[in-house]
Design a binder for these strands. Structure first.
Lengths: 217, 217
DNA sequence: ACGGGTGTGTGACTTAGTCACTGACTTGCT
DNA sequence: AGCAAGTCAGTGACTAAGTCACACACCCGT
């Protein structure tokens, strides 16, 4: 994806876009790299062109949970707050697939916010979506049963079926304990819609499966 | 609080401020009033001058949880997302104490974002703080024990000691079930640092209480 | 005084999280 | 090949939290 194709710049005035292309820094991030850690200061606003970055946080207890992902065409809204308030990040970000980002220096970001209505709008929309997704996450964690959440996670990843993932990783994904994941997966396997091996999960989820989720409502 | 004293307008250019004063609508909200409900469309950006509004959401299961509060000098960041993306709210807002808000029409908001750097900055800071608080909430719900959370809530409200609050309300506050709250409160009372009556809780929390919270770490 | 509405207390049971430990698979080294 | 260390998964026993069902106390109006 080219800079100009990032939705944050959609409909942007050509002279501003030129300015961006001159002053933005492009950064390539290899998979596995930690982009920022709790306490880090923010250097600029990253916009993802391609790739995927996982944002997670570690509780005081040492437990971790995945909060959300920043994917193709996304904006790292978290950075805006840090940039503006001048405080450090509270979460950490880890590159999952090789990622290309544009980093807008603070000054460029501010000038775009001042001069481009479409840019402004896009930034606010991204922010709203992030807020929304966190609210949904709160609701899910607070009220949804673990078996249902796990089953949904698996189903939403059924397309890359022989999943290479450990129970521990899955536990962080859902914010629970490894043992809980192991037990539920075992149940699912007994129900016959998944198959387990060390570090691998095969999903044979025939559409909406009638077996796994115990009456939700 | 006067319009000009709201921190969102701190350092704002006088002519812009005049514009705001001309075009902003001031609304008085009585306690108990529902400001918006899930699905409602957003009319403009509300800035709270004085008062307190509770934002909560109802899960698919019918359970409720308080997400955060908008208090004196706050901005309803949730509305920005709705305003920009044109979708409805996902949460609901209820006035807790009589509240005065300024409502900025979309056009005024946008013009301020374009023309005032301090305003822009304040809005982004508010947004960042809101994201932050939701992330903390996620962590708390996912990993903190209920007794600790309840004890902390009580301690943080110890100043208005004979609290008039029901267990049910407290349960929504923490996103749990009423029975859980009742049982924990009973334990606390047995430990001797609170005293219960119908719809009322007296707190005698002598500083950091040595009795109630069972080893956290 | 009575009766309905609203809060609260409790037991029994299910689900989730914690702790401690076993064993299996993987990799690399000798 | 054989072994050792590291990683991953399974499990039992126990505690914490959430659910369900129901009893009962308190409050207020008639």
């Amino acid at each position: 994806m080219q800079i100009a194709e990032h939705p944050a710049f959609a409909g942007m005035e050509p002279d501003l876009l030129q300015d961006v292309q001159k002053r933005a820094r492009i950064v390539e991030l290899p998979a596995g790299q930690q982009v920022f850690r709790p306490g880090d200061q923010c250097q600029g606003l990253p916009l993802v062109l391609e790739g995927s970055v996982r944002v997670q946080m570690t509780g005081s207890s040492g437990h971790e949970i995945v909060l959300y992902r920043i994917g193709d065409a996304d904006v790292c809204t978290l950075s805006i707050g840090c940039l503006m308030a001048g405080r450090g990040y509270r979460a950490e970000a880890i590159v999952e697939t090789p990622t290309t980002v544009i980093v807008l220096p603070n000054s460029v970001f501010d000038s775009l916010m001042a001069r481009s209505a479409p840019f402004r709008r896009q930034i606010m929309v991204s922010y709203g979506e992030r807020l929304d997704s966190l609210m949904m996450l709160v609701e899910e964690i607070a009220f949804q049963r673990m078996d249902v959440r796990l089953a949904e996670w698996l189903r939403s990843h059924a397309k890359d079926s022989p999943l290479n993932i450990t129970h521990q990783t899955l536990a962080v994904e859902l914010g629970t304990a490894r043992e809980v994941v192991s037990r539920l997966l075992k149940d699912f396997e007994r129900d016959g819609w998944i198959r387990l091996a060390r570090g691998r999960i095969e999903i044979h989820g025939d559409g909406t499966p009638p077996q796994p989720p115990p009456l939700t409502a």
